[in-house]
């Protein structure tokens, strides 16, 4: 296969926004192409590197507060990448979702500007949302999504934003509309770790079909169905909360 036909997956700031292991999404995307005979490369775009042009798909994950501020400034400082993110397919998870929005507030009146690619804003909620999530995806044919959320930011969608999914179990965006994540014709944004694409291969293929421009053949991997059954069951089970421990060291804003 020629070099031009290689799908280039840009993994943004895995060294900074890697806390919740969302890098696995890039592995899943690449492997689901390679196993169907389509060449794919994962390009690690670390904080010390110059972002390459010409990626077909970007993946950005979750991290701690200081890391999120760093990432927002870093992305705003790389103009070409910022423009590319407006037109290229993107999977944005947790802090990654938040920085694609208008701003992220710290609860003390300070607002960290985001990229403004998604019409959403984020402010800290009263407590962290931690646990299994089950949602119904707005993308036709994708169905139920499972993931693990772990965030304090609560996200309000603006009039130009649509949710990725409706929450059935868990917190999601934390807004009264019961929404989870955000969805545009090119961006899939979510709070779900797991990583989300490992848990939900149909969502991975939704992103990949957009990149390759057509349907992809079915692909079943050992334990994929086992993972799905396991997490559907977990999401329906009352989840043991760790309130006292969590409250004792509840997330503090970085100086």
């Amino acid at each position: 296969m020629s070099r031009e036909s290689t799908v280039r997956i840009g993994l943004l700031l895995p060294d900074v926004l890697g806390t919740y292991s969302d890098r696995g999404n890039a592995v899943v995307l690449a492997q689901r192409l390679l196993r169907r005979g389509i060449d794919a490369d994962v390009i690690m775009v670390t904080a010390g590197s110059s972002p390459p042009g010409g990626c077909d798909l970007y993946v950005i994950g979750g991290g701690e507060d200081a890391a999120q501020s760093f990432a927002a400034e870093w992305l705003l400082g790389h103009r070409d990448l910022r423009l590319a993110l407006q037109t290229t397919r993107v999977l944005a998870v947790c802090a990654g979702l938040q920085v694609l929005g208008q701003w992220v507030g710290d609860g003390h009146g300070r607002r960290q500007p985001g990229l403004g690619i998604l019409d959403l804003t984020t402010s800290p909620g009263p407590r962290r949302a931690v646990g299994e999530v089950l949602t119904r995806c707005a993308v036709p044919g994708v169905g139920l999504l499972t993931g693990f959320e772990n965030h304090r930011g609560m996200t309000q969608l603006g009039p130009d934003a649509a949710p990725l999914a409706a929450v059935m179990h868990g917190v999601g965006n934390g807004s009264v509309d019961g929404s989870e994540g955000a969805l545009t014709s090119t961006v899939v944004g979510t709070y779900m770790h797991g990583p989300v694409l490992a848990r939900n291969p149909v969502l991975a293929d939704h992103l990949l079909q957009g990149v390759v421009g057509g349907p992809l053949p079915a692909l079943e991997l050992p334990d994929q169905e086992g993972v799905r059954q396991l997490h559907l069951a977990l999401a329906h089970r009352p989840f043991e909360r760790l309130g006292p421990v969590r409250a004792a060291i509840d997330r503090r804003r970085s100086p």
């Binding site: 806390t19 701690e64 931690v130 760790l242 060291i249």
Partner: peptide, 17 residues
């Protein structure tokens, strides 16, 4: 380093404590 993040134990919070 990262461990049991569901306890609200991001590394910065543990270090602060």
């Amino acid at each position: 380093t990262r461990d049991q993040l569901d306890r609200g134990s991001e590394v910065a919070a543990v270090a602060t404590s």
